[in-house]
Each structure stands twice: as structure tokens, then as C-alpha cells.
């Protein structure tokens, strides 16, 4: 029906007919899809396990497929390639915190507990990525691109700061 290319859809939408799914035409439109949760609220965490279903995107080339994956899971393909080539750099959260603004930097001195809590409440409970910076490993399963997290994300700092107060 489409010619050669790659069909991208949510895993939970299975392999049924595309007629039941909405066609997403552009990368900008795809960005709007992944930036909202099922209630239409802002979804700032791209790794969160609440990616909406019911759409598909037809990528006409492997270059376009890369762009599509970049929108859904930014950095994931690059990390995967780096990991296979043995050049995936992973730091610890303190190194990352040093490059942040003052409030986050303060976590280095007295935020160990807040960071641990945020790792449980956010990374473990809600995010599909594996925080390598917290000592987690990323299982590379056959046929799957691993979702590595090499550095705490902005939401993580928000949650860590909130849990400390």
C-alpha cells in the first residue's frame, strides 16, 4: 500500500490494519503526538511509559526513520551506536549536577537522599529508560533498541528538588 519504507507505530497497537490508526504526516505533527499524554497534557519526559497509541508514521527511507526515532526517543539511536562501538560515556549524577544552576548544584552536598528518591519515583516508576548514571545497566534485547539514560534529565532535577523540600 505504501511502497518501500518503514511503518512506525506504538507497540501496543499490534500489527492490525493501519486503517484503524491515524496517519501522522510530518515530523512536526509527530512531535505534537509524542509531546502530549492521553489527556492532552504536556508530556515532557519522552521516555515515560505513557506514549499515546492510535497513530502511525510512514518513513520512506532509513534516514527518515532515524528522524522519526529521534522525535520519539531523542538520542536513543546515537546512544545505541555508541554503546555497540564501546564509546558510550556515562557519568554520575554529581558530575551532571555541577553543570546545572545553583539549586541543583546544592544537591551535591546534601541531596543524596532526594536523588535516590527521585530515581525510584521517577526513573523506576515512570520512565522506560535505564539510568546508567545511577548504576543501572541497559539490557540489549534482540530486535530492540536499548533506551539508555546517560545523564539525569530536566524533569529529574525538578523531582529531586521537590522531594528535598
Amino acid at each position: 500500500m505504501h511502497g518501500l519504507g518503514f511503518e512506525v507505530r506504538h507497540e501496543r497497537d499490534g500489527d492490525g490494519s493501519v486503517d484503524l490508526l491515524r496517519k501522522v504526516e510530518t515530523l512536526m505533527e509527530l512531535e505534537e503526538v509524542v509531546r502530549r499524554d492521553g489527556d492532552g497534557k504536556y508530556r515532557p519526559l519522552r521516555g515515560e511509559r505513557n506514549l499515546v497509541q492510535g497513530w502511525f508514521y510512514w518513513a520512506k527511507s532509513s534516514e527518515e526513520l532515524r528522524e522519526v526515532l529521534e522525535v520519539i526517543y531523542p538520542g536513543a539511536v546515537g546512544n545505541w551506536e555508541a554503546e555497540r562501538e564501546g564509546r558510550l560515556v556515562q557519568g554520575d549524577w554529581k558530575g551532571a549536577a555541577k553543570r546545572q544552576m545553583g539549586r541543583v548544584q546544592k544537591l551535591i552536598e546534601n541531596g543524596e537522599k532526594s536523588v535516590e528518591r527521585a530515581e525510584k519515583e521517577l526513573c523506576q516508576a515512570r520512565c522506560g529508560k535505564s539510568p546508567l548514571w545511577a548504576g543501572k545497566t541497559c539490557r540489549a534485547e534482540v530486535g530492540r533498541i536499548p533506551l539508555a539514560c546517560v545523564e539525569p534529565c530536566p524533569i529529574f532535577w525538578d523531582v529531586a528538588l521537590a522531594s528535598g523540600s
Binding site: 515532557p44 519526559l45 532515524r66 531523542p74 538520542g75 539511536v77 546517560v150 530536566p154
Partner: peptide
């Protein structure tokens, strides 16, 4: 790429060819 939003600057660089 963004400071307070995904993709981060690092993410934006990582995917580049």
C-alpha cells in the same frame, strides 16, 4: 535542543550523522 526540555543538547548531538 534544549536546556530544560528533551531533546537535551547532548541528545540533539548524539543522533547526528
Amino acid at each position: 535542543g534544549f536546556w530544560k526540555e528533551e531533546p537535551s543538547f547532548a541528545d540533539a548531538l548524539r543522533g547526528l550523522q
